[in-house]
Design a protein around this nucleic acid. Structure first.
Length: 293
DNA sequence: CGCCAGGGATCTT
DNA sequence: AAGATCCATGGC
């Protein structure tokens, strides 16, 4: 990295977008479907340098996974101009990135996220990998890859209950069947526009507005997707009531209709890179209110 | 014990 | 069409 502020691996990995990362011996290891990714951080003369490796070897995987092809400075400038809060958090946490995940792993991950907390999401996904992934020994460590769609297709609800999915087990089974049956082309979804891709992804069992936006943002290149979760709602209620209509009374949870109204307003406000604004807001909220992971 | 966690499906009005 | 309720599970 020529500029240390263009990527901060620690904040990016710890921003609740990708769950199967683990730090061992000063290196981060991440499960990227069938592959293991490795990042080692060095500090020379007070400057951070990252070294990237993987098994099997993938040339320059970090360019793709950390979206280093995005015009980061332009994006930061564009979303910072929209309001003071985003302006301040982009400068407070420089280098926070959106990651580009594998769609299937991303879909399963966020199916497990509903009404759940991050430590438990991670635990469930680790359990799934250990039970149904392939064992890989590399770099003096043991890893389990993320189960393939075909392997998940052969599992059952009781299998998944053993991994701790709870009532989400049925969603995963149904969604996997739907994807296999329709042979939903993830490449095609990535090429569709936001609205059309969202309409398709919403058909999957267990995928509502919020999870759909996470899948679109984190694995299908839809940078205008702005996932609205409980933390973001708390933030709006506390610090930015203007964006909520006077007549929009939000109780504990947001209704699908309210989600769509709010989502549209937010995307009109932040524009084509709303997803980056969301990730910064989410991260700063969690830092401020205290994360539990 | 109750409440909450990067919600969504289903039933009820 | 909009609310209310239920859904497993574990940490606090």
């Amino acid at each position: 990295m020529s500029n240390k502020y263009t990527l901060n691996v620690n904040s990016t990995i710890n921003s609740g977008q990708s769950f199967l990362w683990e730090k061992r011996d000063n290196s981060w290891y991440g499960i990227y479907e069938e592959s293991i990714l490795k990042i080692t951080e060095y500090e020379t003369n007070g400057e951070k340098i990252y070294e990237y490796d993987s098994f099997p070897k993938i040339e320059n995987w970090h360019q793709h996974v950390f979206r280093l092809d995005d015009k980061y400075e332009l994006i930061m400038n564009e979303i910072s101009r929209k309001d003071m809060i985003v302006d301040s958090v982009t400068k407070k946490y420089p280098g926070l990135r959106i990651m580009r995940q594998k769609p299937i792993q991303c879909i399963i991950s966020f199916l497990c996220s509903s009404n759940n907390n991050i430590p438990r999401i991670r635990l469930i996904l680790r359990n799934l990998s250990k039970k149904f992934g392939k064992k890989v020994e590399w770099d003096g460590n043991v890893f389990y890859t993320f189960p393939s769609l075909r392997t998940l297709y052969t599992t059952s609800v009781p299998d998944l209950l053993l991994c701790g999915l709870g009532y989400r087990a049925e969603f995963v089974i149904k969604t996997v069947k739907e994807i296999v049956k329709q042979e939903t082309d993830m490449v095609k979804l990535a090429e569709m526009n936001y609205d059309n891709a969202k309409q398709e992804i919403l058909k999957l069992s267990g995928v509502g507005d919020k999870i759909a936006d996470c899948i679109l943002l984190f694995s299908l290149n839809k940078l205008e997707a702005f996932p609205i979760d409980t933390w973001i709602i708390k933030f709006f209620q506390k610090k930015w009531k203007q964006i909520l209509d006077e007549d929009m009374i939000i109780k504990e949870k947001i209704t699908p209709n309210q989600y769509r109204v709010l989502s549209k307003k937010i995307r009109e406000h932040y524009g084509r890179y709303s997803g980056y604004a969301q990730q910064y807001l989410y991260y700063s909220i969690r830092e401020e209110y205290g994360r539990k992971w």
